[in-house]
Design a protein around this nucleic acid. Structure first.
Length: 453
RNA sequence: GCGAUCAUAGCUUAGUUGGCUAAAGCGCCUGACUGUGGAUCAGGAGAUCGCGGGUUCGAGUCCCGUUGGUCGCCCCA
């Protein structure tokens, strides 16, 4: 077998020890807050049947699904003309019956439908797992990345939206990241499309105005014209795009503009209600009408979170979707959910250097010894420390050079080293060295634990 | 799917209009220091210059192809 250059697939990453400590800090913080609000964790398989995934993410989404070649004789049932006519979709359907999950929401909808008889509704679940997309990797976009979803299904109450906003606020408060939460409502966008007489262009309109931040008003208008929006309609859209002022003022203006749209007014009512119930937020909560989000299954509230102190796209998103389980034969179940973008939060925490020191600490004490007898003497001491809850290592090579052992402690950022030689052994002591200050004192073996804590 | 750009030691990079044995910093190993890391000093190992082809007396350098990274567009957490 020839030697291969080690490599990993395009758009995937290894996470090394420090990165994992940081990622675990992120995941644990999010989990703690989810649990605090009564959300329970589930996991679903990395792979789903393609029939579950196909057609749920639009035509683009289908192209971005990783498909898994059938095991065994995968050519079984493939006919000559399947190969001949370049119909890759049809061929793929015969060769692959499974695919890697593209997000956590669709597998969740599948899960809810399959387990509906065991689930207490409203069902509050969270799920932190990787998802895969055969996308072209670029800044902040990978082919394998983690989503941290929390959803409530089976409840139309807007208090769920309120709770999710509080969760977002609490999580970013714990991270120490200052954020602005932006909120909009899909019904308001529908109302807008209705009022300007172009309801059929709703999707195009949302896609275009979502870019307002990025490409500016002129370019948004140009794109809308290109999509077939008339000048009159465009003119009527402008005041809405340019809406400014307090949340209350924006909603007041909207009420007037959307007065004749039943859907639009309903969206305004929902927004107002949520705003009235959210209290004591530390984050800013802004109504932002240009927040549209690409996801077409959203039907009510839409959320997005941006960090205030660093340039980074959205670091959390979410919204309400009606009837998500409908495609699996379980109609009338509404859900609302959010998803923290762990990879981007990771970048933000790195940029702002906001990791708490103890989140990154691994081993607290290393036993360093001069030979086999000392090593044997160290073992029960190490176990005693572990019983006291102190993360402890014993350097395992008897007679390894002092320099080697000390360097190991240094490299792993271990704050305490317990040195054991013949003298210490005879006296029932250890020499305890503080690796930060360099100070070293002799300590009775029985007092080690108290010195370290 | 389209476009730009980059690829030299474990890492970060230098390498002139194509020209001697491809250079440095960091890291690693050894020693100064046989009971002490992080500092300093001395020495050492480590590169088929991403891969394949072409031009040339001669290619890290120029040309073509290919793979991978990065960034942008489309799309999208």
């Amino acid at each position: 077998m020839s030697l291969v250059k080690p490599s990993i697939p395009k758009g995937t990453r290894d996470f090394s020890t420090i990165e994992m400590a940081k990622r675990n800090y992120i995941f644990n913080t999010i989990k703690d807050v989810y649990a605090l609000y009564g959300f329970q964790q589930i996991e679903t398989p990395a792979m789903e049947n393609l029939s579950t995934l196909m057609g749920k993410y639009g035509e683009e989404g289908d192209k971005l699904l990783f498909k898994i070649l059938n095991s065994g004789n995968f050519m079984n049932g493939v006919a000559e003309d399947d190969l001949a006519d370049g119909g890759t979709n049809r061929l793929a359907a015969k060769l692959c019956e499974k695919g890697l999950r593209y997000d956590l929401t669709v597998p969740f909808a599948r899960y809810v439908t399959m387990h509906r008889d065991e689930i207490p509704f409203p069902f509050k679940r969270y799920q932190i797992q990787p998802v895969w997309r055969a996308d072209r990797p670029q800044k902040g976009r990978y082919r394998e990345f983690f989503q941290c979803d929390a959803d409530v299904v089976g409840s139309d109450s807007l208090l769920n939206e309120v709770e999710l906003i509080q969760i977002i606020d609490e999580v970013f408060h714990r991270f120490g990241i200052r954020v602005a939460i932006k909120m909009n409502n899909r019904k308001i966008l529908s109302g807008m499309a209705e009022i300007i007489g172009a309801p059929e262009l709703l999707v195009d309109i949302t896609v275009a105005i979502d870019k307002l931040d990025k490409i500016g008003l002129e370019n948004v208008n140009a794109e809308l014209r290109e999509k077939g929006l008339g000048e009159e309609a465009l003119a009527r859209l402008q005041p809405i795009l340019l809406l400014e002022g307090s949340n209350e003022a924006k909603l007041q203006t909207l009420k007037e503009v959307l007065a004749t749209s039943e859907t639009g007014l309903k969206g305004i009512g929902e927004l107002s209600y949520i705003l009235s119930k959210v209290n004591g937020l530390r984050a800013r909560l802004d109504v932002d009408l240009t927040l549209a989000r690409g996801l077409n299954y959203y039907t009510g509230a839409i959320f997005e979170v941006k960090a205030l102190d660093t340039e980074m796209g959205s670091i959390t998103g979410g919204g309400r979707y009606d009837n998500l389980t409908g495609v699996f034969g379980m109609p009338g179940v509404s859900g609302v959910g959010i998803s923290f973008g762990a990879d981007r939060i990771f970048d933000v925490l790195n940029t702002l250097d906001l990791y708490p020191a103890d989140a990154l600490l691994s081993t607290q004490v290393l036993f360093v010894t001069f030979g086999q007898a000392e090593l044997d003497y160290a073992l029960p001491l190490a176990n005693a420390l572990r019983l006291a809850g102190i993360r402890t290592e014993v350097y395992p090579e008897a007679g390894a050079k002092m320099k080697k052992q000390m360097s190991y402690a240094n490299q792993k950022n271990i704050p305490w080293v317990a040195v054991i030689g013949g003298d210490e052994m005879a006296a029932g002591e250890v020499s305890l060295k503080n690796m930060i200050t360099g100070e070293q004192t002799k300590v009775k073996a029985g007092e080690l634990a108290s010195k370290i804590q």
